[in-house]
Amino acid sequence: MASKTSQIVLGTRALNRATLARQMLLERVPVGAGEAVSGLVGLQAQNVRPPYFQLHARLASFRPAELAAAMEAREVVRMVTLRSTIHTHTAHDALTLRPLVQAARDREVAQFRKGLGGVDLERLTRRVRAYVEEEPRTMAEIRAELLREWPGADPLGLSVAATRRLPLVQVTPRGVWGRSGQVRLTTVERWLGADAVAEAQERPLDVDGLVLRYLRAFGPASVKDMQVWAGTTRLREVFERLRPQLAAFRDESGVELFDLPDAPRPDEDTPAPPRFLPEFDNLLLSHADRSRVVPPELKGRSWSGNQAHCTLLVDGFLAGLWRLEEGGGLTVELFGRIGAAQEELVVAEGERLLADMAEEGSGSVRFASIRG
């Protein structure tokens, strides 16, 4: 095993290109939506539309109807998993990944213990399961049902307990492109059915396997990086157990990074085309040190309060924000100047997005005032 001081140092651009390659952002790849969702270990789906835009930025021939059909066929689902946020996962990952982060979700319930005094959490779990498996329920209905038994409890605490203690999925039509619907919840087991549950039991996912999948999608990465991505802790011993089968590097700050030996690590000068990413794209959320994508001087510029903006990558790095305009068209706001050649590529990529993803299907790409 190489000592830390003898490990190869990966600079920011090298890390950028390696991560973009794993994220299918150096070039669009010819795979289906389900395979991409699995390879990326889920898509951040705090809002309804971002998963569709995430796939459009990555897949060669993606159309929203493909992911919508997979959702309606229950091949993919929306549920709370990583970082306690809603993700779109394949059916298999929904059943096998959630148990691996369940301990962290349980700890979130403990934060509300003052408002849950006298609430038997095991009884609450059984009651919610029975209630939502009768038929999918809204959060308001679940909360009202629980308040009938524990009228003095904190309503928010009851809601958190229900959604963290149980693997609840948002049933369709919620999340289906072009349709609308309230958030209605049932258990992942009821929604996916006995056959899917049996298949998941035959092909379980353990924490070692999850580490390897994370590295394949987001590496090279540190232990802390993965802990940020998953919203969990105490993964050091897992990485140490896997060390003999991993490659180890350092970043320019001396932090140890792990990777799969056969994973792509392109040359740092590999071209990276412009890409329009939606709000909450996991590319920007899955490392403790995000400088591999977000230049230090732009840290925090893709957020306003708790709301993330849609982001533009130029040469692989955050370079601006974008939005679709009501009535058509796409507006780009750059953080700094880019060359004429890059601007032409941004316009071409924006026109592709408008043609494939804008509901109006028309309009043009315009540049707004450069943000200081």
Score class of each variant (00 low, 15 high):
Pro266Cys: 13
Pro261Tyr: 08
Asn282Gly: 13
Ala272Tyr: 00
Pro274Gly: 14
Pro273Val: 08
Phe258Ala: 13
Pro266Glu: 02
Asp269Glu: 14
Glu279Ile: 02
Pro278Asn: 05
Glu268Tyr: 01
Leu283Asp: 09
Thr270Ile: 06
Glu279Ala: 15
Arg265Lys: 10
Asp259Gly: 15
Asp281Ile: 12
Leu277Cys: 09
Leu257Phe: 03
Ser286Leu: 03
Arg275Thr: 07
Leu277Ala: 08
Phe258Thr: 09
Pro278Gln: 10
Pro266Ser: 10
Pro266Thr: 09
Asp259Pro: 11
Asp259Phe: 02
Leu277Phe: 15
Pro271Asp: 07
Arg275Cys: 06
Pro261Val: 06
His287Glu: 07
Glu268Lys: 09
Ala263Lys: 02
Pro278Phe: 15
Leu257Ala: 08
Leu284Gln: 07
Arg265Leu: 14
Leu285Thr: 04
Asn282His: 07
Arg265Pro: 00
Pro264Asp: 00
His287Arg: 14
Phe280Lys: 01
Asn282Ile: 00
Leu257Lys: 11
Asp262Asn: 06
Ala263Tyr: 04
Pro273Arg: 08
Asp267Gln: 04
Pro264Arg: 01
Glu268Gln: 12
Asp281Trp: 11
Leu260Val: 15
Leu260Arg: 09
Asp259Gln: 03
Phe276Val: 03
Pro261Ala: 02
Leu277Gln: 09
Pro273Ala: 15
Asn282Thr: 14
Phe258Val: 01
Phe280Thr: 06
Asn282Arg: 08
Asp281Gln: 08
Arg265His: 10
Leu260Glu: 01
Ala272Ile: 03
Arg275His: 10
Pro261Asn: 01
Pro274Met: 10
Leu257Trp: 05
Pro278Cys: 11
Phe280Ser: 04
Pro266Gln: 05
Pro264Ile: 08
Leu260Pro: 06
Ala263Leu: 08
Arg275Gln: 08
Phe276Ile: 07
Pro261Leu: 05
Leu257Gly: 11
Ala272Arg: 06
Arg275Met: 05
Phe276Gln: 09
Ala272Pro: 07
Pro261Cys: 03
Thr270Tyr: 00
His287Tyr: 13
Phe276His: 11
Thr270Phe: 00
Arg275Trp: 10
Leu260His: 04
Leu284Lys: 09
Pro264Val: 07
His287Trp: 15
Pro271Arg: 14
His287Met: 03
Asn282Cys: 04
Asn282Gln: 13
Asn282Lys: 05
Pro264Leu: 12
Pro271His: 07
Asp259Ser: 15
